[in-house]
Structures are given as structure tokens and as C-alpha cells.
Design a protein around this nucleic acid. Structure first.
Lengths: 105, 105
DNA sequence: GCTATCTGCAACTCAATGGTTGCATAAGGG
DNA sequence: CCCTTATGCAACCATTGAGTTGCAGATAGC
């Protein structure tokens, strides 16, 4: 996963409606139409959100009959989390190093 | 950290310029003015980004003389990462459970 | 104390995006 | 086979947000 892709995932996850969609998908795979029944936004709006989520690899489409359901890819969320954790740890490591230097070790 | 705050952090991290700022802060704490010298955006734009980052707790201000430097809080990044990992793991756990059911265990 | 510099506030522009409605198209199932 | 239902595409609107410039105010240091 490139850095650019990482930022893309964060941008995709930085929207309330998309989290509503993800939450709804937690109940099981669903199509844009099905999600539109449960959420207070139009099917087209949901379709756009799903396209965004799919593009960053958080969700993937599954054809079932004539409907196109979407499934959340937990592994992608975890991969993103791992990257973020590593970055955060790096910063703390640096802080600790600076502290040691400051303390004259 | 509330769910709302979590989404806020993602939104804050979903911007290239803000990552440029974070990267620059990796070289050491710096003020908006100092950052404006290194990055191709105005001081005011950077100040706005820093305000966003501060609001979600990714960065904190440190007064040094008459300048206001900013420091990255790695722990906040790690806390966010942990939340995201947990969510991702939950999804995979559910998928595994469904798979087991499907396989007639 | 003066001055240079750093911060803060306000107004403005422009592009991106979340949302809508409307229509066209495709394809499953009775 | 037809009708129902699901998806796809396009145009459009409103809001947000990233970026800018300009000016005012505070303050550290010489």
C-alpha cells in the first residue's frame, strides 16, 4: 500500500455517511438499493460512497443474481491500522530518544 | 475517544498537505511560520491545518518565546490505529463465523 | 522604547464533494 | 415473454474546505 493510497483510505473513512454504510454492511452484505431502504440518503448517493470505498479497497462488490452487493474487507482496515500504528510508534520513539538526550544519558 | 472523534481524526488525516505538515514536524517541533518556509503553502493555510490537527488531538501547541510551535502526538495516532484494527478484526471474525456456518460445522 | 517578526482575524475565490432528481438500460423471475 | 426491479449515467445544486491576500495586534530582543 502506497502512501498516497493510505491517505486515500483515511479520506474515505473521514465521512459520517460512509461509516453509516459500513455499519449497515456489518449486518451482512447489501446492495446500494437495499442500503438506501435503511439509510436516509438516496440510492445514488450511496452508490457514490460505495464507489469511493471500493476504490480504496475497503469494500468489494459481489454479484448476487441481478443485484450487486458489497462486502467490507476487514483486512484492509487492519492493514491501514497497522501502518498508522507504526507511524505513531515512530513518533513516540523519536520523542523518547530526544528525552534521553535531554536527560544527558 | 468517541466514534465522532474517530471519524474526525480520519478526516484530518485524509489530506495530503496535512501529511506534509506532519512529515515536516517529524524533523522537530515547528511553528506555522517556520513550516511556511519549508512548504509551498502560505502561513495562514498551514495555521488552519494545524488548527484542524490540534482539534482532533493529533498535534499540540508548545509556546517557545513568542512563537507557537507544534508537536505531533504519536499516542493519538496509535490510539486511532488500535480502534481501526479492532473494527477490522471484528469484520474478519464475523466473516470467519459465517464461513463456519456455511461449511456446516 | 522601537522595531522587526510572529500570530490572529476577516473576507474572498475556486474547486471538490455530498446530495438530489430524472431518465435510460439491463436482466431476473413468475 | 413481459414486467418488475436493480443498476448506471448525467446534469444540477449547495455546502464545505483548501488556499489566498490584507491588515491588525502582540511581543521578544536589541
Amino acid at each position: 500500500m502506497t502512501n498516497q493510497a493510505l491517505v486515500g483510505v483515511f479520506a474515505a473513512l473521514g465521512d459520517d455517511t460512509r461509516w453509516s454504510i459500513l455499519a449497515a454492511l456489518g449486518e451482512g452484505d447489501a446492495s446500494a438499493s437495499a442500503l438506501a431502504d435503511r439509510l436516509p440518503v438516496s440510492r445514488q448517493a450511496i452508490a457514490k460512497h460505495l464507489a469511493v470505498l471500493q476504490q480504496v479497497g475497503v469494500v468489494e462488490p459481489v454479484k448476487v443474481g441481478r443485484e450487486l452487493r458489497y462486502r467490507v474487507i476487514g483486512a484492509q482496515l487492519q492493514a491501514t491500522a497497522l501502518r498508522l500504528d507504526t507511524i505513531g510508534a515512530e513518533w513516540d520513539r523519536r520523542l523518547a530518544a530526544i528525552k534521553e538526550i535531554a536527560e544527558g544519558l
